[in-house]
Design a protein around this nucleic acid. Structure first.
Lengths: 232, 232
DNA sequence: CGTCACTTTGATGCTGATCAAAAATGGTGG
DNA sequence: CCACCATTTTTGATCAGCATCAAAGTGACG
């Protein structure tokens, strides 16, 4: 990969603590690559050849079964995906495709594993990242099992609004079809759910969502730290 | 904890590779404790004081929101739970209670974290265990989002049957009420689902389930490695 | 043998899926 | 810039899955 990109990557919390020489060796074998939107990156069942890190853009992780497909997670900068498969040298459990034009750092799995044994600071960072990913999936499972689709949507809007440093709305990062899949509902139902949220002061204009009564929306959504907090 | 229990614990894959002296130090601060059934062990939101390891018995992990409760996972020997919270020094995301009479090893969280920094082999084992837990939750999420309740039940029966080294049925480890919660359905619905499975050769006698046509059941369940395989 | 919790069965209603089609949107080439 | 096309989104009608409510049946245990 290009030397010009190195300082940027070095600052990622995953790499910032490790030994300089080890970092150089890790990057020697890695690729920082650009992808167009909607490119299939990996497929469930593939052997875990690379650890992926989203530097720019966005990635959708999804799973399939019996002809059905569901979105498991959106990954935005800066975060890893399929770390667990890499660490276990196992097959991917999820498939991944780019949501938009993206820059991804690809680190060979074998290199990650050997470096973990040699660089304790790197091992610590990996553990930190992996536990973060773990807790994100647990939150997602709770969101799905404990909430109705409207409640999931309302909480998603509040989370995303906060993530965008706003209190009065948000701009959807994905199309409504994909959002529906992420929220575990059909596009038709998502559309109707947005309709219902009008009663709670939510107006929709394409991808632009505005809240006029965040209090009412919050009362409906009932966000809690153990499902909705962005930090791990 | 008692010295008599040490050899047994030492053989757990989590501890088998670590340095002898370090293991002794870890155990010095730990407790191997017996609990009756239905004891609340931890509650979501509590600070992560201990890592728990199920040595004997069984534990239910569950989450709550807005007055609702759902079972996230059953944990049987030998496995850890709430490892991620311990590693991040964070609050538990899940609550836990014993399902039956159980023996649990409780290791102080701070001790786990400091030992990870000192013993590389132990750090490796922790990473191995954590990625295993991670993949289990991902599988659970896929199970929930991609399958109907009958499909989840059918697959649960097949998995559990295999786990019990049988091909013709199984003995439920929990009551049907708890199983229903684990499968994301109501007890009423679980009862009716068992009724439907009669058409696929499943007979139910209390906790004793028998398959007379495992082929038909498998065609209905369509188990796949990336959701149903027990290994990580 | 009575009590209590679990389980089953039945009736009914809500949530969300499916099917169908119209409307809106966005990208493309003339 | 506009017309055209493909895709996304919305709307409407209907249906299936699952929850809820109610009540009866079953079994474990003091």
């Amino acid at each position: 990969m290009r030397t010009a990109d190195l300082p940027e990557v070095r600052q990622l919390s995953l790499f910032s603590d490790m030994d300089e020489a080890n970092f150089a060796e890790l990057m020697q074998g890695s690729f920082l690559q650009r992808f167009p939107p909607q490119v299939d990156l990996i497929h469930e069942g593939d052997p875990a050849d690379f650890l992926y890190i989203v530097i720019e853009g966005g990635v959708e992780l999804f799973g399939t079964w019996n002809g059905r497909e569901t979105t498991l997670e959106f990954v935005y900068p800066v975060a890893t995906f399929i770390l667990a498969a890499v660490l276990r040298d196992a097959e991917y459990l999820m498939s991944a495709r780019t949501l938009e034009k993206s820059r991804l750092l690809m680190v060979p799995a074998e290199l990650i594993r050997s470096m973990m044994d040699r660089d304790p600071a790197f091992a610590r960072s990996i553990v930190h990242e992996l536990s973060c990913r773990y807790r994100a999936v647990v939150k997602s499972l709770k969101d799905n099992k404990l909430r109705s689709s409207i409640e999931r949507l309302a909480n998603f809007l509040l989370r995303e609004s906060r993530h965008q440093d706003r209190h009065d709305g948000l701009l959807l990062q994905v199309d409504k079809k994909t959002l529906a899949q992420r929220l575990g509902m059909t596009p038709e139902n998502l559309s109707r759910a947005f309709g219902t949220l009008q009663e709670y002061g939510v107006t929709v204009d394409g991808r632009d969502i505005t809240f006029s009564d965040i209090k009412a929306l919050t009362i409906l959504a009932k966000p809690v730290a153990h499902i909705d907090d962005p930090d791990c």
